[in-house]
Design a protein around this nucleic acid. Structure first.
Lengths: 325, 325
DNA sequence: CTGTTAGCGCGTTCAT
DNA sequence: ATGAACGCGCTAACAG
């Protein structure tokens, strides 16, 4: 025990936690002993006696997209600013894994949990919450939780509105399946924008947001007679949009934006270097992460009378060449 | 206490850890009480008395590239297969943050630590290791540690070799700074391949791996008289390569691969959908993550006579259109 | 099969 | 300013 090397016992604890209250010479001796013996304070013991923890757990549905990663970075920044640490767990799009990590954080008595969940039931999160541990949802809305969501409908509206402003009249929305709440919201927004001009939006459904589906839709559009072809495409994801634009221009000889203007969604890091830089809707991931961490801090601090609330983040349109700059 | 609800005390512990040894009726009563009271075992206390932990900590230099994310996913898979859990921390390219999380895991007495570090000194990792906690490095080689690295030189060799096989004779390597070990290794490999044919490789240095640098190099090349222009480019990163190809073809009117064939590096998810699908060198991230987790398990298990070793993962060439398919 | 008890390492009194 | 002693919640070992 480091105590032997120094001279004292629980004074070490003082030295580590409130060095100000310990006499400089003793403090120096203690530090020397710590260095000497390679002493490391045992966090399990500290947490046990303190009854609280200064770490926050965050469970992420996946890591392979920049939106989620931005959320995690924003959360990290805000959590650190609160003097806490953020530990991440990757559910890798698997519900049992998500619940596993939720339980792990629960048992670890973290100060609170941030969850960017998969599009599935929230039993696991509910259990954690019933145990009295604050849980804040990111990118998922549910009663009984604090949360940060993004206004998908507004994003769809922005994109469609922009195409209409550019004089496009025959709009189509590319994306699916509609069981994805985000996709459904974006379509709703696009329809609302068109409705405001007395127009309709054709829906070209896809089975997924994979590039291959974008190429398929491109072929389908190219096969139509020009007059039946949309002149504006609101596409539900950049991955889809980039593939679609590429196929349209390279394979089918159509011009973007001249024959058809295209908007994407997400502002993935690569889209500004795509062949035709893509107009897209950026989701404020950093801000959402920060917001979630702040909601969590409120809930941790605020005692009994905490009221759940949901913050709605506002997406932003980034105009690039695919809609004419 | 759940004990009151049931009837007993440490029997609850048995019920939770080895249910087989408890009489079914008691077990049922306990489970009911657990459910009733929303009891959650306190992991801090368990770890404290057990003296060991079944979680592994992983500190990642960043999350914003698919290589690192693949490493994390591979590690997660293997760690879970060992019956452990993997907690992640994002250093976000900041050394103090990296060291902070290293210490956090150290204090938390995790079973071991996986570290995909920034290209900087490893003091923090050394401290953890001195405390007797196994540390395995990923994508960084250092004496005194187990580690998994990728053979950068082999990757550079593969790329250059491929261009030579395609009949290219005036090779250039684009990338920098050479203080990045990975970049330096790739250049070395390219030079070795050229040397085998009695040729040399021109180095076109970049200040970073950002797309803007790729565009700058493209302009520089386009400005040269055709005979002094390389006909094969080994580029140190996809980000650079995609931007370079785009500028070459779109802005400067050169043909890829006809005028100049190009290889990238990383197999970022977007490159197969780039305007000219990019031949690239894939780094086996999943395998590396798995490998690191397995090395760690060995080190955790193997007592005193553990010998550090480094596994070298082999990158793979993916041939696409930018070198003629 | 179940109850009892010791003590894991630390932070927090309370004396000194 | 420093030391001694208690207890956080749990598991392991043993007694019953």
């Amino acid at each position: 025990m480091a105590r032997l090397a120094g001279v004292s016992v629980g004074t070490v604890s003082h030295a580590l936690n409130k060095p100000a209250v310990v006499a400089p010479p003793t403090l120096a001796r203690i530090e020397a002993a710590v260095e000497e013996l390679g002493y490391v304070r045992n966090r399990a013991a500290r947490d046990l006696v303190a009854g609280d923890s200064r770490t926050v757990g965050m469970v992420l549905v996946a890591l392979d997209n920049s939106f989620i990663v931005d959320i995690a970075r924003g959360a990290e920044e805000a959590v650190r600013a609160q003097g806490r640490s953020l530990l991440l767990a990757n559910a890798d799009v698997d519900l049992p894994t998500q619940d596993h990590y939720l339980s792990l954080f629960d048992e670890s008595r973290v100060a609170g949990v941030l969850l960017a969940p998969l599009d599935s039931p929230l039993e696991g999160a509910l259990r954690v919450q019933r145990h009295g541990r604050p849980v804040v949802l990111v990118n998922y809305a549910a009663d009984g939780f604090c949360g940060v969501v993004v206004d998908e409908e507004h994003g769809g509206h922005l994109a469609a509105r922009h195409l209409l402003d550019r004089g496009r009249r025959r709009l189509a929305f590319v994306g699916g399946p509609l069981s994805l709440r985000a996709v459904a919201g974006r379509l709703r927004g696009a329809r609302r924008a068109a409705g405001e001009e007395g127009l309709e939006v054709e829906h070209l459904p896809t089975r997924s947001l994979q590039p291959a589906e974008g190429r398929r839709v491109a072929a389908e559009l190219a096969a139509r007679p020009p007059r039946e072809r949309p002149d504006g495409l609101v596409i539900a994801a950049d991955s889809l949009a980039v593939a679609c634009v590429q196929a349209l221009t390279t394979v089918h000889g159509l011009a973007v934006p001249d024959d058809v203007a295209v908007t994407g969604y997400d502002d993935n890091h690569f889209v500004s270097d795509a062949p035709v830089p893509l107009t897209t809707v950026r989701q404020p991931g950093l801000e959402m992460g920060r917001g979630a961490a702040e909601l969590l801090a409120e809930e941790v601090g605020g005692g009994e009378e905490h009221e759940h609330r949901t913050v709605v983040a506002v997406p932003e349109l980034l105009v690039r060449a695919s809609t004419g700059g």
